[in-house]
Amino acid sequence: MAQNRLGGQTISFIQNLPRITSRASIVGKKEGEGPLAQYFDKILEDDLWGEKSWEKAERRMFIEAAQLIMKKAKKEPADINYLFGGDLLDQIISAAYAARSLGIPFYGLYGACSTMTESISLGAVMVDGGYADHVLCLTSSHFCTAERQFRFPLEMGTQRPPTAQWTVTGAGGVLLSSSGEGPCITHVTTGKVIDFGIKDANNMGAAMAPAAADTIRAHFEDTGRGPEDYDLIVTGDLAKYGRELTIHLLKKEGYDIESRFIDCGCEIFSEEQDIHAGASGCGCSAVVLAGYLLKQMEDGQFNRILMASTGALHSTVSSQQGDSIPGIAHAIAIEKKG
């Protein structure tokens, strides 16, 4: 019997409560002009960062974010048992090539923009199970690499519809440790792949909202908790309209989360930055968590948050073949404990 399971989709950690002992975030220029600028460790002067290609710039962000996390925790790569991470590019090249440089045992993950909490979920299991003392969980995305892979060339003069989202240029992550100072991961709720038939790749928020709502509902049902048990409920990158849809869907299930619910995609840019519905990308929830949210927890603004990064699991091929866009969301409960 699995004794740490709660309900259908949730596990709770009891033995070696994984703690977030270090964190770091690096963002692009535009993100550094947004309202959360002060929370990021490093802001690039330009999105190429002196590299030969954007892919290489993204890779370097990944590497430097990892190094920064280790430096803050006074750890060497040899101290880290595992690296869990991923990104948006084909064959997750940013994470894989970064892992080549870092020399840490590596599990490459693809959960689209849900990869941040996917990484933390698995990393936390490793720590709680007694299989690891220190696990790095890291993701990245880059506007220019994502745009050319998923949409159009950058210089192509096309209009973005109002529901379009802007991929965050950034890399962020955390160090999970079996001991030390920092907030704990107490629960992990693994999401199911949910598809409500949305086909418009320019409306990712709508495609992912059912997955976010489903995972949050499952978390409440499995743990017996409700919205009032959390100071803040956070989703990854649903943006303005996806957030509204999630509120709607959860109301139908009997949960009113509106007053304590934010979406990372709505926080990182301001209205004036002409990004339309909001932000997206693996890096979005990664840098908002590692930069802003954990800092707020340190400062005592929040004691317990539920964070669900959200991902759209389609590809350009599936879109061209007329498939709808399936979504996924993995939730983690983070709590300050003495």
């Binding site: 529901t163 949305i198 709508a206 909202a209 309209y241 849809l245």
Partner: peptide, 10 residues
């Protein structure tokens, strides 16, 4: 859901 999404999306 499509209808809901359409009504919310601008």
């Amino acid at each position: 859901y499509q209808d809901l999404a359409n009504s919310i999306s601008p």
